[in-house]
């Protein structure tokens, strides 16, 4: 296969960027999308052009590092798939593919296709945890949790924090990410003691980071590689509102 790539190149956070065009030939359909970038980068080195910087690590679809906006969609054309699990058999010979970084004021570009997603870490640090110090736990089976409830919590916990939801949302809202964590812990008895504070603090931090507000377009869930459900956002709204109304300390 021969592919034409238009890739966003930007030297650093403050530089002005632009799309550059590269042709890649002899692409095997069995290659992953990132392996095609590897091949291109190796060639660029021989041509004395600095290779394209992009985030990637596990290449198994679980670490959440890879983050390319491919032909107008985060992680490309397939559903429930990260960039690293996208293979070239999903494209046709002669295709032109436009690759851009995640776009959000809360995710500034570091270089080329690499963005800074530490805003997500700060949101987790504001309340995405159960305050249990090491050694304080009771026996694991002392806390029975019904299978349905455990499964729901697991489905929310499957979030890999890649930021595709923010990238896809026209408002660059982080609600799906935040709601997944809030939901996971709201669904489990372990999360109960800090339930109200968690919702309030995480939403406050999310707002402080400069993400937009959710307008329920559903683009986030449609593009989420782990198919996190919009139900979580409704749950977050519920958690936040009931905490705002009921919590005496707010």
């Amino acid at each position: 296969m021969n592919i034409t790539l238009k890739v966003w190149r930007q030297k650093n956070q403050n530089a002005k960027g632009a799309l550059e065009t590269y042709k890649v030939s002899d692409v095997s359909p069995d290659m992953s999308f990132l392996e095609m970038f590897d091949v291109l980068n190796e060639r660029l080195v021989t041509e004395d052009i600095e290779p394209i910087a992009f985030d990637h690590d596990c290449r198994e679809g679980i670490c959440g590092t890879c983050s390319m906006y491919i032909n107008g969609r985060p992680h490309g054309p397939l559903e429930g798939v990260t960039t690293c699990q996208l293979h070239m058999r999903s494209f046709k010979d002669g295709d032109t593919i436009v690759v851009e970084p995640w776009r959000a004021s809360a995710f500034p570009v570091i270089k080329d296709l690499v963005v800074d997603r530490t805003a997500f870490d700060r949101i987790i640090a504001s309340g995405g945890f159960v305050s249990v110090n090491t050694g304080n736990a009771q026996d694991a089976n002392n806390l029975p949790i019904g299978k349905d409830q455990a499964d729901k919590a697991f489905a929310a916990a499957a979030c890999i924090g890649c930021g595709a939801c923010v990238a896809a949302c026209k408002n660059a809202s982080a609600m799906l990410f935040v709601s997944a964590k809030v939901s996971q812990l709201a669904l489990l008895p372990q999360g109960e003691p800090e339930r109200e504070k968690r919702a309030l603090n995480m939403v406050a931090q999310m707002d402080a980071e400069g993400f937009g507000a959710c307008t329920n377009t559903g683009a986030c869930a449609a593009e989420c590689p782990k198919e996190i459900s919009l139900d979580n956002i409704a749950r977050l709204n519920r958690e936040f509102l009931s905490a705002s109304v009921a919590n005496p300390e707010v």
Partner: peptide, 9 residues
């Protein structure tokens, strides 16, 4: 984005 295909309505 230079290219944007929306998956929302």
């Amino acid at each position: 984005y230079a290219v944007n295909k929306n998956s929302s309505s």
